[in-house]
Structure formats: structure tokens, C-alpha cells
Design a protein around this nucleic acid. Structure first.
Lengths: 343, 343
DNA sequence: CTGAAAGCGCTTACAG
DNA sequence: CTGAAAGCGCTTACAG
């Protein structure tokens, strides 16, 4: 690969001049400019961004850590990030933590060592290694928390109003007349799980339905856990169930089949996270639609704003943006069966 | 951040000594070693990988370009890549091309400028810019082609035997007695589309069913195109249809609803790409299961092998590995309805 | 076994 | 407006 030296030599100018025309960072006379661009053309010169990054102390790369890219919730979020990041001139380093703190720490250190300009983090279940928190602080690497909020970390956050979404979902079930509403929640020590539980409890409370601890069981966002949680929950004879994500709902449907139960006839289901294909297959799921793409997009934009000069970095206060959900009514809640029944 | 200079000064040794203990690249006496490690501890020194990369001409980063991470086919592939790459000490730069050649070229140049050690590329529809092909060659950046094979590019390939998968799918439909089998294929100028069509035609041929060009319509892998293609195809009264991916099948199901047709009662469907949730919703799709995770894993491993020394880079011939599909029988093909009917 | 020096390919004051 | 020089933070021959 040709270097800036080669170009300078070919154009018979100095390094600084080449750099100036490449970056448009200073006026260069038309004559020299054409000589330089010609040399660049001829040599096929492409600036080495590694060297540039080292010199400028800025990589134009952002690191993103999600729990698991293979969980269908995340790809759309990543796409939002990718589009917004790219539009602002940033590239994306990606990794999955599997909600494993050790893995998360590993990737975090790695990304820091690679000198990403900033991080988009969906905190793995549990606290953040204090070492890491300190490192984040001393390196002054901005991190915006995405989807999940950890108190171990300050800074910007882009979240979804899970409490309200869950409340709406459970209130809908209550309105339809269901009274033994189970819940399959996500991992403990994850902020969304706490918020969803809160929404669930608030809905029950406002309908004066007593909270029954045995009706909420915990999963880990994966299919198998939804299946296991479902079997456990079904023994307690709920008439409806609210599930924290799609993959666990898939598992729950398997549990239903194992018990020869039908949805929504025997039991109603409302779940979090909508997908284009839910319309086409039965039972058509009623869901709390989470704005995935917008989440990623807003996250990346927030990070970029924090990164770009012009915003006196230290001066700007932490920002937290909260996106709204919408309830997406279909068949699995038993709307059609129950309409009016609970009124 | 502390630099290697700071460590050297604190430990009262030279740079080379610090480098030697950090990298374990040469013997250092126990005394100096402890002094150095103590200094590293005390200063919280983390090597700057950017500087290292520049010096070593090696970033331990690989770039991956997929058509669209939000298409549910890709996340699992990315996960396979991520796991294998990370296991070998590589980080992943990711981008979606949207099957847009210009976007692909942009990302390719960017990744090259960032000096990725190698690339995992699922070629966007259409040829590769000759400039880019030349650049890939002169920089000697290994690229392994994933899922799709472009003749514009030599080198390693990790593919799926789409022809055989499609043949099995269509043969299954023929065996059940269907004779007017439509096809919704993917984008033109994409190798998988050609192979799937080939499998479709071969199946028809071996059953002595005449190929009817009007029965194969083209989509672009997205939901809307499956819907539009479906409406078009349904006018031609097929009794079964083979669809090239999941998203288009989702769109096709919408077209079925619009025409008040049921699957499999009125029309049978077999599609490519299996998912955990297909078991839980109706109609339960019969699919050609594509080994997504394995594809990504094999791709990353192939690339890493090409990258690691010990394998005389130039000497090793291009390798192409082809993964097998399996037919996953469920309800949408009408197995239950038709068993024996076509025999 | 250890250290001084050059080099990786850029950017950016600072003179002229 | 243009150029020589130092610096970004490492690695790696090469002496000693």
C-alpha cells in the first residue's frame, strides 16, 4: 500500500501538504492540489486509518455489547445503531455477552484497548466490575446504556418505558376478565425485569387483584427457560400469562402443547416484542411492541452527540431518553372470545 | 492512560523489557519481571492496541458484511462468526449492505482503510467493483465468501448446498402429489438464487414435470416482496409453492390471507431457513434447515486459518466448504393431508 | 539478558 | 501558503 510519504514524493511536496489536501484541513494552492490528487490517483493511495487514529487519538469506532445477537430482539436494534453510526461516520465493533459478566468484562476491556471512541452497552445481569467502572472513568470513554439501566454506571441512557408497556398489557388482560394472570419474567438483576414486574403489579393493584408471588416465575430470555417456566406456571392454573420476551413465549407455547392446552381458548397470552411474522401465524400474538430500531438509532445518536466536539463534553449533563411502547392487539389475548365478558 | 513509557520509567527498565514481559516474547529475569508487573499493576497499564496494530501491521480485527442483520437469517450466522472469531482472538467489525453494491463498496473500502486482517463477505447482488477487487488483491487481504459465491472473487468460500436442499424440498412436494409447484426465489444475480432454481428445476425434471417459467417469480428477500410475489403467483393457481427465505414466506402468508386461501388445505408451502419458533405457531412450516451458526463458525475458522502464520499463506490453495441442509417436515407441506395421495 | 534506536503511517504545531 | 520536525504508543532488529 502506498503511504503518505509515497504521495508526497510523487507530488514533490511535503507530508503536511498531502495531509492538508486529504483532510481539507488547510488551504493549498490549486497547483499543488492537482499535483497531490494526481499522485493519490496514480498510487491508489488510501490513508491508513490506524495511523490516523493513533495520531488523532480518535478511532471513529464505537463498541456495542448486546446480550445475544441471536435473540431476535437485538438484530433490529443493532441495525438502528449501525445506520445512525454510519451516517455519522462511525464503524461498529460488535459482541454478545450472553448476560455473562465475565464475558462482558472481557469485551469491554478489549474494546477499550482498541480505543473505541464510545460504547453502547446493554449491561449484562448483575453489577459492573468496579475496576472496569474506574477504567471507563479514567479513560473518559463515553458509554450510553441501551435498553437496560445499571446504577453502577452514570451517563446517558436510552431506554424503553417497560413499566408502562407491561401495565398496559396486564390491564388489557384484566379488562377482558382474566384474574389469575401469571408472568414469565426475564433475568433477575436486569432493570427491564424489575420494571416489567412493577407494571404487572401496578396493573393488578389498580384492579384490586391480589398479587400472588407464586404466579410469577423467572426465565433467562431463552426458549428453554420459557418452556420450563411455563410447565411450572401451568401447574398453578393461571387463566392468562404475560411473558417478557418472544423467545420465552416460544418456549411457553411448547409447554402449552405438552399440557394439551390451547391459546387463547384455555389460556391467554400477551408478550413483549413484536415481529413482522406474528401476523401470519396462529395463535396471532398480542404484544407490547418495543421500538427496537428507534432504540438503536437513538442510542447511537446520543453517543455520537456526546462524542462530537461543539458539545463541551464535560459540560453536557447526562441525558436519559425513554421510548414508548404500544400495545398490539391480536388473538392470543382472547379479545374475540372475551370481548365484554369482563365488563 | 499509562503508556509503556510510564511503565518502563516506573520499573526503571527499557521499553523493550516491558514489551517482552507484556508479550512474553523473550526471556526476562525474574527480578525485572516482578518490577515490571508491579509497575503495570500500579499504573493500571493496558497496552494500546492501536499502536500495537500499527507496529505489527496486524489488527486482529475482521470485517463482516452481510446483506441485512435485521433479516432473521443473519443473526445466527453472525453469532457463529463472533464465537469462532473471538475464540481465536479476533474482534468483529460488522455492517449491512442491503444488497446495495455502492453501500457494499463503501464498507469494504472503510474496512480496508481500517486495516482489518481479513473479511467475511456475503456478496451483494451483482458484480464486484473491479477497483475493489484490485485493492483486495494488492493489499493481500484474505476474504472468505460466506453463503454466496461470486466469481469476481477468488479465495475461500463457505457455502450451503442450496441446490440439494431445494431439490429435496421440491421433490418432497412432488412425492405428495403436487404438480403445479410455484417458486418465490430471491434476488437475481445472487448465487443462492441460481442454485435454488437449479434444485427446483432438477426436481421437476426427475419427476417429468414440465418447467413453467410463469410459476417462478422473483423477490428481494423482504416481507413486502414475498407478499407481492405471492399475489402474482396465486393468480396462476399453483397447488404448492417453494419459497427462498423466511421473510418472503411471511409476506406470502399475508397474500394467502388476502385471497382467503389456507395453508396447507388450499396450497402447500415449503420454505428455506428454519427457526425455533416455527414449531409453535400454525401453520407449522416445513423448511429446508440451513445450518446458520455452523456457516458463520466455519467461515470465521476458515478465515482465521488463512490469517494465522504456520500456514504458508500463499501456498495454501483456496478452500471451499459446503454445508448440507436437512429437510424439516411439519404441516405446511400438507404431509398429513396428502400422505400416500401422490403415490 | 537488557537497552538505545529506528520504524509503523499518520497529524499538528511551529517556523519560514 | 509550505516544509521540517516531533509526537501518537507500540514492536523489533541490533548491539552490548
Amino acid at each position: 500500500m502506498a503511504t503518505i510519504y509515497d504521495v508526497a514524493r510523487a507530488a514533490k511536496v511535503s507530508l503536511a501538504t498531502v495531509s492538508a489536501v486529504v483532510n481539507g484541513t488547510a488551504y493549498v494552492s490549486p497547483g499543488l492540489t492537482t499535483r497531490v490528487t494526481a499522485a493519490i490517483q496514480k498510487l491508489g493511495y488510501q490513508p491508513n486509518l490506524l495511523a490516523r487514529s493513533l495520531a488523532k487519538q480518535q478511532t471513529h469506532t464505537i463498541g456495542m455489547i448486546v446480550p445475544n445477537i441471536a435473540n431476535p430482539f437485538w438484530p433490529e436494534v443493532v441495525r438502528g445503531v449501525e445506520d445512525a453510526a454510519h451516517a455519522a461516520g462511525y464503524t461498529l465493533l460488535m459482541a454478545s455477552s450472553d448476560d455473562d459478566r465475565a464475558k462482558e468484562a472481557l469485551y469491554l476491556r478489549l474494546f477499550l484497548a482498541k480505543r473505541v471512541d464510545g460504547l453502547l452497552l446493554t449491561k449484562a445481569a448483575g453489577p459492573l466490575d468496579p475496576d472496569l467502572a474506574a477504567m471507563l472513568r479514567t479513560t473518559r470513554t463515553p458509554v450510553v446504556q441501551l435498553m437496560r439501566s445499571s446504577t453502577a454506571l452514570g451517563g446517558d441512557k436510552v431506554l424503553i418505558d417497560e413499566r408502562e408497556g407491561s401495565l398496559a398489557a396486564v390491564a388489557h388482560l384484566l379488562r377482558l376478565g382474566y384474574r389469575r394472570i401469571g408472568m414469565i419474567n426475564g433475568l433477575d438483576q436486569v432493570s427491564t425485569s424489575a420494571q416489567r414486574l412493577e407494571g404487572y403489579r401496578d396493573a393488578l393493584a389498580s384492579w384490586h387483584v391480589e398479587f400472588e408471588a407464586a404466579l410469577v416465575v423467572r426465565g433467562d430470555f431463552r426458549v428453554e427457560s420459557g418452556h420450563a417456566a411455563g410447565l411450572e406456571l401451568l401447574d398453578r392454573k393461571p387463566d392468562a400469562v404475560f411473558i417478557a420476551n418472544y423467545l420465552m413465549t416460544v418456549g411457553f407455547m411448547g409447554a402449552l402443547r405438552a399440557r394439551h392446552l390451547r391459546c387463547p381458548d384455555d389460556i391467554a397470552v400477551v408478550t413483549c416484542d413484536d415481529h413482522p411474522w406474528l401476523d401470519s401465524f396462529h395463535p396471532r400474538l398480542t404484544t407490547v411492541n418495543l421500538p427496537k430500531y428507534e432504540l438503536g438509532q437513538a442510542g447511537a445518536r446520543t453517543l455520537v452527540e456526546r462524542l462530537e466536539p461543539g458539545h463541551p463534553a464535560g459540560a453536557k449533563r447526562a441525558r436519559v431518553v425513554t421510548l414508548k411502547t404500544t400495545l398490539c392487539l391480536r388473538d392470543s389475548c382472547g379479545c374475540d372470545l372475551r370481548r365484554g365478558a369482563g365488563a
